[in-house]
Every structure is written in C-alpha cells, then in structure tokens.
Design a protein around this nucleic acid. Structure first.
Lengths: 337, 337
DNA sequence: TTTATCTACTACAACGTTGTAGGCAACAAA
DNA sequence: TTTGTTGCCTACAACGTTGTAGTAGATAAA
C-alpha cells in the first residue's frame, strides 16, 4: 500500500522504491534522493508486520521476569532497554508473578516467532525447564540473567552468588555473629542455593556449626513468610545474625524486629542481597550486597543480540559473572555484648 | 506454511483449516476436531505477523514511561500487564529517560501500526504535544496516566493531584509548619502544577503568605538538584516544612538533612508523593501521599482496550481520578518548638 | 420436476514487504 | 560485429494468514 503509493506517485516500480529505501547499490543516487524525499513527505514508515513476515525476523525481544516491583528488575529493564534502543529492537515484557504455570504459558506464546530472542529470569517455582528447552529447540536464542537454569547451555549473566554469600556471612561473623540464619526464597532457585553454599562454606571456614534449623525456606506467600520469620525470631535459640537471600525477606525481618522490639544490630544483625536505593536511610541503615542490576541487564541484552544477529554461532555458552558490592551499613555494626 | 502443513496432512484446503482453528460455523464439528487435534500434535501456533498483516491488528500495546526505577511505575506496569495478559495482548515497553527527544522518536516508531494503542506518562521535559497529536491523527488510541497532557482529548487516568496537594500542605500546617517549600519536578508537567495549586490554595486558606522563593523548580540533573535543596535548607529563612512533588526529591532532602545535621521532623517536616515500600522503615519514617499505582495501571489499560476494541466509539474523553492516601508517619510529627 | 435453501467445503485475492531473476540500455573489449 | 560487462530498473513470487466469493451436494419447498 504505502510502498506502492510512493511508487505510483513517482512512476517507479515498488521494487525500486523498496530498494531505494534500503539504500541498495542497484539504485542510482538520484532516484534514491527522490524516493527518500517522497518518503519523508508522505511520512512513510515500513509496515513492521509485512517486513517481519517476509524477513522472518521480528526485531523484537522478550523479557520474562517474575515482577517489576523491586529495585533489581527495574534497573535491569533499564539496561536491557538501553541496548535495545541502540540496536533498534523492541522490547516485550511478560511477568510470571513467580508462577511457573504462567511462565510456561508465556514461553509457549513466544515460540511462534513473535520474538527473535528471550531474556529470562525464572520464577521461584520453576522446577523443570522443559518449556525453556522447547524454546531452544525452536532455535530461539535464550539468555538467562540472575535466576538461571543451571543445567541448560544457554548463556547466563549473574553475579558472584557463591562468593557474595560467603562474604556476607563472613561479614556477619567478623562483626560478632555466632548463630546466623539464612533466609532462602526457594529451594529450586540456583541463586538461592549458591548463596546458601557460600553461607555454609563461610560457616565451616570459621568453625561454626551448620544448623539446618537456621536455614529457612520460604513459600512465596507473604503471610506465611512473615510468620516464619516471627517464629525464628521468637524462638529461644534466636539467631544473632540474619542473612536474607533477597530484599523482601530483609524488609520483613525489619518489620518483625520492630514488632518484637528487637534491636538491629544489637539483638540481631541483618544483611541481604538488595538494590534498595533507600537502604542507607532505613532505621537502621541496612548493610546490603548490591548487585549491578543495570549492568546485568545491559550485558544480558548484549549477549542476546550477539546470538540473534549471528545465527550458527550458537555454542558460545557464556557464563558472565558481574561482581556485587558489599555495602557496609549499620544493620551489621559490631556491638558489645 | 504451517497452516498449509496441517492442510496437506489432512487433505483439506488451508482455508478450511484456518476456519476450523478459529471455530467458524462454516466448518463441521468433526473436521474441527480433526484439525484441532492435528494442530496440537504439530504444536501449531499462528504466525503473528501474517495474522497482524492480514487483520491490521497487532494485539499489542505500547507503554511509554520515563523510567522504571521507582516504586510507582513498577506497580503500574504490573497493573497494565495483568489486564493485557487477561485479554491476550502483548506489552511493548519504551523508556524516555525524561528526554523529550526520545519520546518523540518513540512515538514516531509507534505510528506504523506496530501497536493497537499506547499508554503514556510523559517526560518531565515534554513541553508540546505535536508528536502525540500525530498518533491521534493516525487513529492510534492513546491513554494518559499520571503525567498527562491536559489540553488533549485522550482519556486520562490520574490521582487527585490538586486535592492531595492541598491535603499534604494542610497536614504540614496542622502540624505546625509556617514556611512550607514546594519542590516541583517540572514546570511543564501538569501533575506538578496541580499539586502546586493545591499547595497554594491550602496556604491561602490558612492565611499563610505565598512566597515564590519557596517554590523550587528542579532541573532533572541530580547534582544541580541536590545543590538547590542544599541552598534551600542552608538559607537563613529556612523552611520548616517541605512538600516534595515527587519521591526522588524527598529522598534527596533526607540526605541533605543528614548532611546538614538537620533533624526531621524537629527542624523540617517532610511529606511527599511516594510509593516507597520502605517509607515506614526510613529514619524517620516518612509521611507520604501514596498513589494507587497498580490500580492506575489497570484502569488505564482497561480504558485503552475499550478504545482499541470498539473503534468509532472514540469520543469518550474520560478523566478517571483514583484517590491517593495520605499515610501519616514520623517525618511530619508535631514537635514542640 | 424445478427452484430455493442449507451445509460443508474450496479457490483466491488480498495484507505490505523483500529478494531473486530478468531485461534493456550503454559502453568496453574482443 | 559480436560478446561481455556494467548500471539501473522492473516483474514476480514468496512470507502465512484471513475473508469473500463461489461450488458442489443434499434436503426442502414449489
């Protein structure tokens, strides 16, 4: 239609116009100029569907994440979008709400060529990866970030979960903690497990016993989760240090501490993985392991575009690790006791 | 291709298959069952581009926002996505980074039929709305949320900015403030202006003078902005109350107060529009006007889908207002002085 | 019997691009 | 003069759907 419009107005074939618009060497400079001028005049825009249908490319990627409501996924999207905008790609966003069924449904939808590639951070619940393997089989490039599926070949961009977990734990130990609890979001999530392994290794390194009752596995249900924290902090063998694998659990810990009149850091010290911008303004300010969220987003997107643009070059099963920073604040301050 | 595959395997014409898949009454139940079974067997998915090209519908909407990195736009996306998922729509996301040039470029891209509708919250910088009017001219439904363009006819979903502004100001006055500063993000943004008008009306209602030196217009540049706050709080005629039109400015105020050793709420009281989940855990906990972000997202999306699905029914220029809540916390607590 | 009305299908032309194959000059090399 | 070789353009068939128009065959009404 529109291509044809330009063509008829200029008395050219629409092949010529199409080529002129894409700056083909088959077209003389003079006609190119003519066409370009006309195109601008008529405010011509290529029809993305016709183009995608013909070229079998969508110039679109999907980002599949559990939620947007925290300070991690926001900057990640930011990073992804910044690269996508540079490359002229479009970004579709899908939320799983930590629900594996939704994740499966979403990946099913993505199998039909709507997108050229997928960036994903899996849900807490995701236990098997059939749906993701199906994507791979359909040759749709897949890049994991943060919450990865360990046994899949696709590239992964994460932070140094194990080391960060160990560092966080050591930080608590150095500041006087003897009984450190680990709050895990999910037993199936590799980030949670890696962080926990770091935690365990730090304990053994410092000759502290590994007490499984101090590893709490959460359900995802806010009420139950809060109750779990409450019980932990009310128990006679209350921990003196809490390492939350995830921001939400630390916030809830703060709230329960207030409720139970426990003082942070005197009664319990708290550290967690978090990108909270206001961590320094909390009462008390919270020691965090801050992930380079924006960079993770950019890096993951960059790798995805590499895959998308050079097919055949599949097997670069990269594992990119971007280090997190431990930001020491008052919630883990050494106290005399 | 794929439609044809099913057709040849079943010895049917591909029209028949197409119709069977879309449950047309022209097709007998028996063949429908046959086709559906085959489709499931072959894991058939309609090609979205072919379909969109043919139907001139994309089943996709765009969300254009300044940033994702705060606790307002996150939940908004959540709300939008929830409705989109229910309706089987896809959500493209574009960030303007508060840059009008980017906003213009993005809306240009959206003119080519890639999306059936657009949800937008304009950037701080956006001074004129030519680019948005162009969208309307191309008959692409547009719904504003939060940061709207007042003089355009498109539906708008906002909170009660004027009243909330007045309430916030009165709250400060009632708690003892006499010199209240208003921190405005942008002079061109209607939300900022409406909130300011609320602020002014509350001042006059309580017989307080309107002092233009207490209305600070920010630039968007973090360093300059902080300096503006610093100067305000260092000035001999320091305000005793601060009403920030936006979360970021309140956080910066907190930081500067710490730097200048000013006590909140004793020296200055602070209130702001914010959806910060940790507002209650800040030191001191921050009084906020909390916007129903999720609901704004859902409502805006719902209106957009109404427009998208019944063309011709354009002129319903709705203005939907969803009330915010003033959550009283310690940053505005009455102090004796 | 003819004509009308169903039911269940098929044929086919769009939708707007893009890439390949082809054509026809003009000029150069043989 | 023939044969290549460019340079610049056109024709046309895809890409995978979908809706309209059309066609049989069967049943019902005249």
């Amino acid at each position: 239609m529109t291509l044809k419009q330009i063509a008829t107005e200029l008395n050219l074939s629409f092949s010529t116009v199409s080529k002129a618009l894409r700056d083909s060497h088959e077209i003389s400079e003079s006609t190119k100029k003519l066409v370009l001028a006309k195109a601008k005049e008529l405010n011509y825009q290529v029809n993305p569907f016709a183009s995608s249908l013909r070229k079998q490319k969508s110039k679109t990627i999907a980002v599949v994440i559990p939620e947007v409501v925290n300070d991690f996924f926001g900057p990640v999207i930011n990073g992804i979008e910044s690269i996508a905008q540079e490359k002229g790609y479009h970004v579709l966003i899908y939320l799983t709400h930590e629900d594996m069924k939704k994740e499966v449904a979403i990946t099913k939808i993505l199998q039909n060529g709507r997108v050229d590639g997928v960036l994903i951070s899996i849900s807490e619940q995701t236990s098997d990866a059939m749906h993701l393997q199906e994507l791979e089989e359909k040759e749709i490039p897949l890049v994991f970030f943060d919450r990865v599926v360990e046994h899949m070949d696709s590239p992964k961009v994460t932070t140094d979960d194990y080391n960060s977990g160990a560092n966080a734990t050591e930080h608590l130990i150095e500041n006087g903690c003897k009984r450190i609890a680990f709050l895990s979001i999910s037993q199936s999530l590799s980030i949670s497990n890696k962080r926990m392994n770091g935690y365990r290794s730090a304990l053994t390194k410092h000759n502290l016993p590994i007490d499984d009752s101090l590893v709490i596995n959460f359900t995802g249900n806010d009420l139950t989760d809060k109750e779990l924290i409450r019980q932990l902090l009310k128990s006679p063998a209350r921990p003196d240090g809490i390492f939350a694998s995830v921001e939400k659990l630390a916030i809830e810990t703060y709230e329960i501490c207030e409720e139970l009149q426990l003082k942070i850091p005197a009664d319990v010290k708290v550290i967690c993985f978090s990108n909270l911008k206001t961590a320094g303004l909390l009462s008390p300010s919270m020691t965090t392991i801050t992930q380079p969220a924006y960079e993770i987003g950019r890096e993951a997107a960059a790798i995805l575009f590499k895959l998308v643009e050079k097919k055949g070059h599949h097997f670069l099963l990269e594992k990119t690790v971007i280090n997190s920073k431990l930001v020491e604040r008052n919630s883990t301050r050494k106290t005399d006791s």
